[in-house]
Structures are given as C-alpha cells and as structure tokens.
Design a binder for these strands. Structure first.
Lengths: 243, 243
DNA sequence: TTATATTTTACAAAAGTTTTACAAATCTTT
DNA sequence: AAAGATTTGTAAAACTTTTGTAAAATATAA
C-alpha cells in the first residue's frame, strides 16, 4: 500500500510516551500517524493535514479537549473522533456534554481494543455517523437551516434572511452562530466562546466577540438595544435564546 | 473474435488483487481490459483508450471516485459506468449524490452477478441510458442547450449567445459551465471545481478557476462587477445562480 | 511555425477580522 | 445618592486573508 492509500490518523495527546506508543502501534497497523501535543497544535494540524480520524485526549494542557472537539465539529460534522478520557473521569462528562463523539475509551485502555475501535471507526466510514451521539441537538446533527424570531439561516449557502433582507454571512459569523445555536439557552463566557469558536485561549480582554454580537443584533434583533436573542449576562458572557 | 471486436473495459480500482481478479475474469469472458489504480490515471486512460464500459471503485486514493465519475459525465453522458462501493457504504451516497450511475455493486460482491451486470450494461448499449438515475437534473441528462438571464448556450456547438453576440466557447469553458449548471444554487469550492472539472486535486493556490470566472462574468453578466449568476462566496468558493 | 488555449505569477483591490480606544451602562462601596 | 470600579457597546484603525485581473509563461493544436 502506498502512502496515498493510507488512512491518516491525528493523535492529540500531551503525554509523550502515550502518544508515541499509539503512533507506533497505529503505524504498525498501516496507518499514517501524526501527533499534536496540545489543542492549538491539534487544530492546526487537523486543518492542514485533513486526517481521516482523530484520537483526542480529553485532558489537555491549554485549551480543553472538549473545546477542541467542539471547534472541529463546527466545521466538520463527520470526521470520526475517538476520545481518550483519563481513568476515573466520569463518562458523564463525555456523554452529557460532548456532542459528536463517535467513541471513547478510558485510560488505561487495552491496546487490542483500541486498535479494534480505530479500525471500526475507519471502516464504517462516515455513513453511520452520529449513531453514538446521545444528544438531542448536538454538533453532530446541526441542521442545514435554522429559524428563529423571523430570521432564517441557511448554513449550506451561509445566507441569512432577516428583517433587513438577505445577508451573506462570513465564515466566522457562521461558526459563532452555530456555536450559539448548538448551545441555545446556555450562557457562554467570552473565553469559552473564543476557545471553542476560535480555538484559542489567549487574551480575553479583546473585544472580538462583542463585535460579532453587535453585528448579530443588528442583523437579527427587532430592537438591537433590547436584544431578545443575543442577550448579555454581565460578568458572565452571552446567551442565545431561541424565543 | 479479433481484438478490434472486443469490448473494452476500463477498471479503476486501487486494490491490486481485486483489480487483477476482475481483469482476469473479464478477460476470460472475452473482454479487453485495462486497469488504472487511481482517479487521475483512470481519467487519463479513459481519454486515450476510449473504453466501452468503466468499472469504478468509489473509494479511491487521491481524487475521489465520485469526482472521477462526474468528470467523465461532463464529457460523455452515455458510457456505461458500473460503480463498486465499499462494503457498508450506503447506497445513498451513490443514489442521492452521483448522477449518471448506471449500476452499482457493493463489495464484496458475487462474481457471477458482477459479470452478468457487465454484460447487461454492454449489450443494452446506450439506448436505455439514464434509466437508473433518480435525479431531476443530473449529469446524465444535461440538456443540449441552456438559457439563463438573456444568455443562451448551445452545448452541441459550444456556442453562446449573449449580450456581446455569439461566442465560441472553449473546451474547458464548456466543461466548467456544465459543472456549474448541473450544480446550480450549490456552492462549489475551488478545490472541488478543480477536482471535478479538471480531474486533479493538487495546488489550490493557483488562480485558474478564478480566471474562468472572470471570463464567464464578462460573457454572461449584465454587470460583471455585480454578478447575478456567477457569485463568489468568500472563503467558500463560487455558486452559479440561475436567476 | 503560428495561432490559440490554458495555467501560473504577481500584484492590486476588496472583504473580513482583530485590536484599540473610549463612551455608556451597570454594579459596589461609601 | 455620589464616586469609583467594572463591564459592555461601538466605531474606527490596523491588520490579515481572499479574490479579481492582467500579463507572462507554458502547453496544445493547426
């Protein structure tokens, strides 16, 4: 099998010896493997390398593994992701929280089992995706369109129909909107928004998020000064309310 | 039967043992068979060898099997194509997505059945073509002419009637136009356009596509600066809108 | 070869994003 | 209630990325 045939696996894991161990064993199975040792690096490599599967440690330094997962799901709903959760960590965190997880394993895990799961995820392809997601409205099943308060958003074409007519949404607007919609009713802090929507966790004093909110209110609110959907919660962040 | 009489079959399949197996069995049936092990090679051989039937694996390294299919359909609507889809892959992908499929089989398949289908596709000739296509406006049924916004394109003669009079379209212009028309309303990324329209997926930093768009706008738009048909979607690609 | 078509290169123009700066609003403490 | 401290809203400047376009380079056909 030549290189082009090989399935690509991105391992996002900070513990070097675990990462190397996984890489070795996956390589022996004939996969093409690269490692990223933190979330930011992981997101970078995901974008440029376009892997077929991601193995993601949920406990990561810097930005949280779940944020990495969610960021990826904002752009790709289908790529299989296998979560590694630390021993003792409750599966709840994964089950209840993370949408679009395809499978997860608790460390320490059985190598045999790990390899089997990888194979299963890769061979089933993307067709059965979402079968394991236990949520009602997770990232894995973001609808193609969304309607709220007289506005209608088409995520396929990135076009929003609102009071002021048709608007072409930008890439970042779309990402942030998806994030809000997938978490509607739930307060999101600026830093969480930056972490998930932008994949970074540096400077939180910037007004980046706020500027997008201003825009959303202009687009979608009847009265931007008294927002019904994009509400701010002082010293907490923002919430998106559907109604 | 001498060689010239023999029906020619091009097998585009990356798994060598499958490809060789198919070749052997088809040869035994009296067909003339060659193999291509990836999409680019397949397109090349299709052009130079002019086979009577193509057996195409949908899961291909490099450019996607569906792109190969679509590329072929941009130039030849009639050649019978038999798709091989990997085990577990939903027929949906083929049914719903790819237009101009004549038949498909899931791997692993029964050899007997395979040979029968090949024979059927070859003997029925082209008369019944399109019977299996479930689409409203797929590649298999691109009309001979197309009219939009005061422009009229004749695909038989490659002549376009537009504001500025009659224009002789070039080969590549025709291909790209067909691609846009068959996907009207649907955003197409530069890399998808290159993959389907050109049969390659390397360098995406080139401005090849954009230059064609400039030309189309000059030909077909009332105001090329404010395109009504060939619209660009920043960081996504282009869409062709009929109206 | 010449003529024609296509692809690449290079750069200008446009669009999108982030930062900065500061005003307005809201909360806390006296 | 006033003063001070935070936090949020907003616009504009600075910066980044993507797209449009022409011209040069390359390929292809006649």
């Amino acid at each position: 099998m030549n290189d082009a045939d090989k399935k690509r696996i991105l391992v996002i894991e900070d513990e070097r010896h675990i990462a190397e161990g996984l890489k070795l064993n996956l390589s022996l199975q004939g996969y093409d493997v690269i490692i990223a040792s933190d979330g930011v690096a992981g997101l970078k490599k995901w974008k440029e390398w376009m892997p077929d599967l991601i193995v993601l440690d949920i406990m990561l330094p810097g930005i949280d593994g779940l944020s990495v997962l969610q960021n990826i799901r904002l752009e790709d709903e289908r790529i299989p992701i296998l979560i590694l959760s630390a021993k003792g960590e409750p599966d709840d965190r994964i089950k209840g929280f993370s949408y679009g997880v395809d499978d997860y394993l608790s460390k320490p895990f059985n190598l045999e089992e790990f390899l089997l799961r990888v194979e299963r995820l890769l061979t089933r392809g993307s067709w059965n995706h979402g079968g394991n997601s236990i949520n009602g409205f997770g990232f894995a099943s973001l609808p193609k369109t969304y309607t709220f308060g007289g506005n209608h958003i088409n995520f396929e074409t990135s076009v929003a129909d609102c009071k002021c007519g048709k608007i072409n949404l930008t890439e970042q607007e779309v990402k942030l909107l998806k994030l809000f919609i997938a978490n509607r009713g739930k307060p999101l802090s600026r830093s969480k928004l930056l972490e998930i929507g932008w994949g970074y966790n540096r400077d939180t004093t910037t007004r980046t998020v706020d500027n997008f909110i201003v825009r959303f209110r202009k687009y979608f609110e009847d009265n931007p000064k008294k927002p019904a959907h994009f509400k701010s919660l002082r010293s907490i962040g923002y919430v998106f309310d559907h109604d």
